[in-house]
Design a protein around this nucleic acid. Sequence first.
DNA 1: CACCATGTTCCTTG
DNA 2: CCAAGGAACATGGT
Length: 283
Amino acid sequence: MPELPEVEVLVRHLRPLIQNKRVRAVHVFRPRVIRPTKAPQLEQTLHGAKFISLERRGKFLLFTLSKGRKTFPVLGHLGMTGRIYVQLGSQPLPKHTSILLDLGRERMVFEDTRYFGRFTLDTTSLSQLGVEPLGEEFTPEYLRAALKRSSQAVKIKLLDQTVVAGVGNIYASEALFRARVPPGLPARKLKPDQVQNLCRAIRAVLIEAIEFGSTVPLNHGPSSDSEKLFYFGRAAGSADYYEERLLVYDRQSQPCIRCKTPIKRITQGGRSTFFCPACQKAH
DNA sequence: CACCATGTTCCTTG
DNA sequence: CCAAGGAACATGGT
């Protein structure tokens, strides 16, 4: 369920649930997910440690734990299908549980169907990340500087986590539509006002998604659809709010909400991009 | 069988 | 060294 907004909502939800909880035991069901950390090292390090804080950085979750006088980080990433929830120890475990942290009466479960996610002591991935799109450093000037030397399509650049940390395939299409910028336009060809519109659009779509996600109850568990609902709101409910949340993503051939032109799907970098060929035209 | 899916990392090529 | 393109990772849905 992961792009920046989904991770942000998850972090806010999780924070009070794990604060000051102590790890009694660690179960690693899929060693790949803790790479490059080894299971004995993770178990030994986490055993007896207490959760101190939880922050989001891009699409990563940064847990801080303490043990004795020492404090250390654990880095989480949901990949494509990861979920994390706190449940009672008596609840059934989901089929694709990759990590289980026993917290006493409760436990923290990392479920991940495709096992692309991570839960590791290795924090080196963080050093590669670009600025936070909701932070002060994400300005039109910054974005212009990041785009000006690249011949890659602007859509591809938005997915580059070393430029902006947290934008994924869904919100990249949404932001470009909102800014009326053609996804295939080479990054260096954007005009200053397009860069400014894009900068604002990225912030707006992410903030609105966080606000939307905050209204969805996250009573997640193995049988809950709440996160699918958050992510694929259009398919999951009938309320207008849900229907209208994503304006172009996964709407191939449906009429554009602005001009009724059918939305197009193209492939860029091996991934789908959705856009309105009329509203997002180069000129 | 085919193709599609919210992401990152590694390898190759230029 | 860098930028860019593509495959790999793994499972499930349609």
